[in-house]
Structure formats: C-alpha cells, structure tokens
C-alpha cells in the first residue's frame, strides 16, 4: 500500500508524444504480439508521435518475455512489470503515471477491443471533449455470465452517478492526458474512471466501437462481480456526491428508522390504551430498537463528518475541477484544470 516506487516518465525520452496508449495485461502472452502489431498498425498511419505502454500486472505465463520480444520490433513500446499482481486498477494507474501523451487511450489487453477504433476516439477528443468512451453496442460475449451482469451494473452506475454513458465497463476510452493523470484512481475503481473524472466537470462523449470475441486465454470476470460493483457504486456515490455533507446524508438514512420508531411508539400507546390487557413487551422493544438504530446512524454521520474534517487535506469533492476561461479577442474558450489552487493549461 505504501508508495514504493511510481512508474515515473522515462527521463531520457524526447518531447512528450501526442498519444499514449495504456494497456494493462495479465497472463496474455498469446495476445501480446497480436496486440502490439494491431496497435502499431492503427497508430502509425496517423503520422503523429505516440507511445504504447503495456503494464504486466505480475503475470506468470511468460507475458514479460513476450513483451521483451515485442519491444525489439516496436521502439514506441514501453513495458512495465509490476512486482506482484496488484489488480487492474493499480496496473492501469501505473501505466497512466508513466504516460506523457496529450491524449491517453486506455484499453484491455485481451484483443476484445479493436485498436482500429483509436483514431476515431482521438479525433472525438480533439473536437473538444475530455473523455470519449467506447460503447460495445454489439458485444460478443455470453449473455448470462457477461452481458446480463454488465447490463445490471451499467444501469446501476448510470443511475447512481448520473453519468449518461451506456457502457461503463468498456475499457477502450480516450482522455485528455492532464485530466486523467490528475484523478485519484485507487482501490478497485478502474470501472469508474468516467464518473471520477466527470465529477470535476469533464465533458463526456460516447462513440460506438467494435467488440470481438475472445480469441486467447480466458476471461478474468464472472457473475459474482455484480455484488462487488454494487458495493463499489455505493462507495462511489458517497465519495463523489456526498463527501461535502456527510452528516446530512447519514441523517437521511436515520430518518427511516426514526419514522418507523414513531409509528411503533404510536402502536404501543394504542395497545396500552385499548381496553383489555395486552402484553406490551414486543411493542416497547420494537420502538426502542428503531430509535436506537436512528440514533446510532446519526452518530455514525457525525463520526463521518469529523473524519473528513481531520483528513490530511481538507478534501473537497471538487479539489480537481475543470474550468473554461473566456477572453476577449479569443474565439474559443480555453479549458484549464484547477488543481491545488493552480490552473493547469490543457494542451492540444
């Protein structure tokens, strides 16, 4: 968990390229030669400087050797090997930290994304978007184990984060480099790069991309991830939408048992006042339980609020925010990223 060595940009490299493509790979030794060949075939005709960053997330199937061989034929390739299998989010972040491109394209290493879509994604970013997300409209996956969980997860994420894109899970996306490099990509949040980025006001577009059936290796996901995604979405909603008013958010939860407790109190009173003898133990017990729960949740809210106040920096949801600067004599506004009180000009 501790910072034990960032990826850092290669000091000996020349000026920053226009495009960086970042691909985390895990046990994809068969795909790697094809992946590199297809990426160069898609990028070279663009006639713009680019770099391909492949991050080996601690594979044990000889992926690193495959990367060595691929690097011989492709001088634009930078390969990073992580010391252990650190998860897709960490691998993606390693690649992003090492990237220097004005536009960063991310994709999966299993060849299900088609590198031929990259020029269209890049062109869309240059139309004036900070994020362009791929949309696998015609997915080539099994329905029950892949497409159904994905439909549920996307509906959940769309509803919870209010980011109106269809396919959060599509790894093929293009970003303004500075915007992507400025977000805190942590934990298991690689699926939520768009909501995390959009939180700061990024403009998001979506284009349809190709999707191919898996040729090599086997998928690393399954049905169980729906629960994980639900838990993650709940966290995401808290940290993106409510972190500046946690106590109020928790009070909303406390209101439910409080209202039920009131109802239970009225029920208890009604039982007590009704003629005939009644055992009040259950009714009194229910009332007390419900009020206790309401009280505890409110106290948790206070605790959460205090935790935020005591955090190392006074985090605001908008500690990284995009802004547009209008100036007389300039036709189009300039987009800047405000981060730690500094305005960073977005190039390109």
């Amino acid at each position: 968990m501790s910072a034990a060595g960032g990826a850092g940009a290669g000091a000996a490299r020349g000026p920053a390229p226009d495009i960086s493509v970042v691909v985390p790979v895990y046990n994809e030794s068969e795909s790697i030669p094809h992946l590199v060949a297809q990426l160069t075939a898609a990028l070279r005709p663009m006639r713009r400087p680019f770099e391909i960053i492949l991050v080996d997330d601690g594979s044990d199937d000889g992926s690193w050797d495959a990367l060595h061989r691929a690097a011989g034929a492709c001088p634009e390739l930078i390969a990073l090997r992580l010391a252990r299998n650190s998860g897709q989010t960490a691998a993606l972040r390693a690649g992003i930290d090492a990237s220097r491109g004005a536009i960063v394209v991310t994709m999966d290493g299993d060849l299900q994304n088609d590198p031929a879509d990259i020029p269209r994604l890049v062109a869309k970013v240059e139309e004036g978007y900070e994020i362009v997300s791929g949309w696998r409209r015609r997915r080539k996956d099994t329905w029950l184990s892949r497409r159904l969980p994905s439909l549920i997860a996307n509906a959940l994420i769309r509803r919870a984060t209010r980011v109106p894109i269809h396919d959060q899970g599509c790894a093929l996306k293009a970003y303004r480099g500075e915007v992507l490099r400025s977000i805190a990509l942590y934990s298991d949040f690689h699926r939520f790069v768009v909501p995390l980025t959009q939180m700061g006001g990024a403009r998001v577009a979506e284009i349809e991309t190709h999707h191919r059936a898996r040729e090599f290796g086997k998928s690393k996901y399954g049905l169980s991830r729906t629960f994980k995604v639900m838990a993650d979405v709940t966290t995401l909603v808290m940290v993106t939408r409510h972190v500046d008013r946690l106590f109020v958010w928790f009070l909303g939860f406390a209101a439910v048992p409080a209202a039920l407790g009131m109802a239970s109190a009225i029920w208890t009173a009604w039982l007590a006042l009704r003629p005939g003898t009644h055992d009040l133990l259950v009714a009194i017990g229910c009332t007390m339980l419900l009020f206790q729960a309401a009280f505890a949740i409110a106290v948790f809210g206070l605790l959460a609020e205090r935790m935020r106040q005591l955090a190392p920096r006074h985090w605001k949801a908008a500690d990284r925010v995009l802004a547009r600067v209008f100036e007389a004599g300039r036709a189009a506004p300039e987009t800047v990223l405000i981060r730690n009180g500094e305005a960073i000009r977005l190039t390109g």
Binding site: M1, S2, A3, A4, G5, G6, A7, G10, A12, R13, W64, L67, H68, A71, L77, I78, A79, L80, R81, L82, A83, R84, S86, G87, T89, A90, A91, R93, A94, D97, Y186
Partner: peptide
Amino acid sequence: VQYRVRDRID
C-alpha cells in the same frame, strides 16, 4: 501508489 514497478523496457 498501490504498485511497485520491478522492471521497465524502454
């Protein structure tokens, strides 16, 4: 940072 880079080919 949640990762450690062991090797780099560049």
